[in-house]
Each structure stands twice: as C-alpha cells, then as structure tokens.
C-alpha cells in the first residue's frame, strides 16, 4: 500500500531547516515589529557568522530599503557574508530585473527572493528561473486574512492587492519559483505562533519547498508548525536575534518530538 502523502512529507530524509531572518538597511541589521518600529540588532556579517556557529541551517537577508543609490552597500554585504559564512543564504529586496539578480549571484548569494516585483511583473519569475535555474528563485509572499479570504499584500504588507494568496502560490510555482517564503501579516510580530491553518492548506498541494514565516514566539510554535503543516523550513527574526530562543536548544526540543533536524 502507498504510504499517505502526509507520512511521506514527514519522512523525506531532509532535515527541517531553521532560518534566522536578518532585515538589513544600509548594511546594518534591523528588525521590524509588524514591519514598523525598527530596532538595530547588529552587524549582519557578525550575526550571520554567529548563526552559522549555532547551527542555523540557512539565512535570509531582507534588504528593506533597497534604494538604487544604496545597492552597492548591499552587494558589499553579500560578498562579506559569502566570504565568512559556510551555510547557504538568500537575499531579497530591490530585485526588479535579471541584472539585479545576476550581481547578487556573482557576489555569492545562493538564492534571491522577490516579492512585490513578482506581483507587479509575474514574468520576472519565469525569466529568473530560465536564467539561473529554479533553485535560485524564492518567491516571498506577504498575506493577510480579510473577510474570510487570504490576500497578497505588497511593500512590506502596506498595500493590499485583490490577489488570493492560494491562487498566487499556484501561479508562482507554475512559473518557476523554486521555493515559497510565506509570511502571515496577521501573525508577524505577535509571537503567538505560525499560521498553521493556512500553511497546512497551502503545503498540501505544493510540490516545491515552503518556508513558514511570521509569529514565532516559543519553541512549541516550531514544534507545532512542523508537525501540523509539514513545512520544509521555519523562519524567525527577533526571537533569535534577542536570544529568546537558542537554536541548539530548539533543535533538541524538535528532536524529542521526532522532527528530523541537522
């Protein structure tokens, strides 16, 4: 008899990934609570190195104010991270065309993440996948629950669109996204746990990896998101940055729940 789909997802052999997310602005790390009030949490290269020592599985850098004049700062930061860190990382923000992605790839980024730019110009996903392979293309999606439906939001959650999140996810997958980074705006910054309902629904039909984001506040939230939704990775920022959750301890906790981690 064929094992159930959920069973197969739980036992793929691949370790569930823990991903600290570093929001960066002008080459410095900041963390937005609900994407507004920004607090400085340190030097991105130093933080990245610390996280690799703590056995973080991967890192995501989101360049939140990627104005054109400041792009060089970002590229220099990507190079510095690639020189010093021995785990994979993704860089997002300010990528509007192939040449933006090409510069970041050559600076040592393993993946790039696009968000609003993909909504405004969906063929960008196809172009990036064709140029660099799907494994290089992460599509980040900010979603908010309004009147019974999930809607895609732009510009760090400030602008609502009429696009239904579940439909957008299917579209980006068919266009050549290699991975989805799904942030629930309702949960982000609350520390009340991930949006397991939405993540479970989405993940059941997805054949590319998905990273859960928004709402991590305790170790139990990570246990919940992996056991209830079988997502491939979970991302968090402040709970990691301020040492509220330490990755080695979190991995021990996940292991005791039978969740495979590195």
């Amino acid at each position: 008899m064929e094992p159930s789909f959920a069973h197969q997802l739980l036992n793929t052999g691949v370790a569930k990934r823990l991903i600290p997310c570093l929001d960066v602005k002008d080459g410095r790390t900041v963390k937005g609570v609900n994407f507004v009030d920004l607090r400085d949490a340190g030097d991105p290269v130093e933080l990245a190195w610390q996280y690799s020592r703590q056995e973080a599985d991967e890192l995501v850098f989101l360049d939140i104010t990627a104005t054109h004049e400041k792009r060089k700062t970002t590229v220099d930061m990507v190079k510095a991270v690639a020189r010093n860190v021995n785990i994979p990382f993704t860089i997002g923000g300010g990528i509007h065309e192939i040449s933006d992605a090409d510069i970041l790839l050559n600076a040592g980024a393993d993946k790039i993440s696009i968000n609003s730019a993909a909504v405004r110009n969906p063929t960008l996903i196809d172009e990036l996948a064709n140029a660099f392979g799907i494994q290089f293309v992460v599509v980040a999606i900010d979603t908010k629950y309004i009147d019974g439906k999930n809607y895609v939001h732009l510009n760090g959650g400030r602008i609502k669109t009429d696009i239904i999140t579940e439909e957008w996810i299917k579209e980006v997958e068919s266009r050549g996204a290699g991975e989805i980074l799904l942030t629930s705006m309702d949960h982000d910054g609350t520390k009340n746990g991930f949006d397991c309902t939405l993540l479970r629904t989405v993940n059941q039909t997805l054949s590319i990896p998905i990273i859960a984001s928004g709402g991590a506040g305790s170790q139990q939230h990570f246990v919940d998101v992996f056991t209830q939704t079988q997502v491939d990775a979970a991302l968090a920022a402040s709970v990691f940055h301020y040492g509220e959750i330490r990755i080695p301890e979190l991995k021990e906790e996940l292991r005791t729940h039978g969740i495979e981690v590195r």
Partner: peptide
C-alpha cells in the same frame, strides 16, 4: 517528494 531536493541531508 518535493523537487528540487533542497536542504541538509
């Protein structure tokens, strides 16, 4: 399983 095979194994 999902393709690509992405992550630590």
């Amino acid at each position: 399983h999902k393709v690509p095979h992405m992550g630590w194994n």
